[in-house]
Simulated scan of single mutants.
Amino acid sequence: MATISTSWVDRLRSVLGGYEKAGMPFDRSGPNTLTRVVVGIGTIVIGVIGLLSAPSEEYSGWGAVATAAVSLTSLPVGLWICVTHRFRGRTVVGFVAWADVSVTVCMLLKEERLTAIGGTALFSVLTTLAVIATPLGVCLAHMAYSTVILAVITVNAVLWQAASLWVIAAHTLTMLLVFLTPFVLLVHLGELRSQARQSLLDPLTGLLNRRGLEDAVLRHSHAAESDTLVLETVVVDVDDFKSVNDRWGHHVGDTVLADLARHLTVVTAGRWVVARLGGDEFACVRLTDGSRTADELAVSLTRVAMVAGYTMSAGAADTPLPDRSPAAVTEAMTAVLRAADKRLYDSKSRKARGADDNVRGHRGRRGDDANATG
């Protein structure tokens, strides 16, 4: 029994975990095109069903008028969902809230209280969309709301003696089981997300790896409300890192890398997505709608000394992100990382030339001192 309980706790934790452990907020991108079209068509079909039901014996008087009016709104909403690319983020949350209210109104106005209980199955359909495309808090709030409305409709059916208590109880329990189906999907997706997250993380630092960074940028681009996005990147590495491993051993090198990862996480403070690209090379990436601060971040990072006094070099670059498709994001990521990497090594070259000039300057001064003494 304890094993079963622990398993469920772990599953729920995996649902809640999201991407926070990787240093990025959990947000779901919008549904893909096929899912969006299915949702749009489903919304239109539900509207048509409401229009067909309104003049039937299930409704009467102003209840029929209200149901017809609510059902009519479903037609343009469903058509808009089918053709738009803006059905993501807050728009999906707003749609779920609107649909919840619409279903509630239509079910509470039904004259046939027993069929109203069965009609709450529409909440379960909405829950499936909420699981896929809304934050966990919104999804759980929707599920709680659905259960409360089912309870209200059940009490209403009992008060109006729509059927025997046994029949009403059977219908209500059936709906509760239907409500649980999306919850199973929620837990299963949490397990899959937890497994996928492990493949996107660097085991030494706990930061995202290159694949995880690309996935994070794709998700952020889908969640962004702005139409014009710029991808900013700062690439960082430790100066003369090879000497750390050669002189002190790999365990000290790992300590330096872990220290750098913590420092980058603190400095970016959630405003940037931080990842380890490989070796001692790290990247800080963010999407912006105009304000560009990559150069400032790069300069501030090069002024900090790490463990044992080692310093960093950094290179910054940015590029527009006109298309939010996976292929476009991959292309933009490759281009901006390559540009930032080039500036990183240009910075290292300038440091090396500056160090050589300093050495030659010191030698020259020592020679002048010797000549003066002679």
Rank of each mutant, 00 (worst) to 15 (best):
I4P: 00
T6D: 10
S7N: 08
R11H: 10
S14C: 08
V15K: 13
G17S: 15
E20P: 00
E20R: 15
K21S: 12
P25M: 06
P25W: 07
F26Y: 07
R36P: 01
G40S: 04
I41Y: 02
T43I: 03
G47D: 05
L51W: 03
P55I: 00
E57Q: 06
E58L: 01
W62K: 02
A68E: 01
V70P: 00
S71V: 00
W80N: 02
I81H: 02
T84I: 03
R88L: 03
R90L: 13
T91F: 05
V92E: 01
G94V: 04
A97T: 13
V105H: 02
M107K: 01
E112V: 04
E112F: 01
I117L: 13
I117F: 00
I117V: 13
S124R: 00
V125S: 04
L126T: 04
L126N: 12
T127R: 08
T128P: 04
T128A: 13
L129C: 09
A130L: 09
V131M: 08
P135Q: 03
V138K: 03
C139S: 13
A141D: 05
A141I: 07
S146Q: 13
S146A: 15
V148A: 15
A151V: 08
V152C: 12
T154A: 03
N156M: 10
W160Y: 07
S164T: 14
A170H: 12
T172G: 02
L173N: 10
L176G: 15
V178D: 01
L180A: 15
V184T: 11
H188P: 02
E191K: 03
Q195W: 06
L200E: 14
L201T: 15
G206E: 11
G206S: 11
L207T: 09
L207A: 10
L208W: 07
N209I: 08
R211N: 13
L218W: 07
L218K: 04
R219T: 14
E232S: 12
E232H: 08
V235T: 10
V236L: 11
V238C: 06
K242T: 11
S243L: 11
S243P: 00
N245E: 10
N245K: 08
D246M: 09
R247S: 09
W248P: 01
D254E: 07
D254Q: 02
V256F: 01
A258H: 05
D259C: 09
D259E: 13
T268C: 14
R271V: 06
V274T: 14
V274W: 10
D280G: 11
E281V: 04
F282L: 14
F282N: 07
F282I: 11
A283L: 02
V285F: 03
R286H: 06
R286D: 03
G290N: 09
A294F: 06
V299P: 03
V299T: 12
L301D: 03
T302P: 06
T302F: 02
V307P: 01
G309H: 05
M312Y: 07
A317R: 04
T319I: 12
P322N: 11
R324V: 02
A327S: 13
T330A: 15
E331D: 11
A335W: 05
A339Y: 04
D341R: 09
D346E: 15
S349N: 12
A352F: 05
D357H: 09
R360V: 10
R363A: 15
R363N: 12
D368S: 14
D369S: 12
A370W: 09
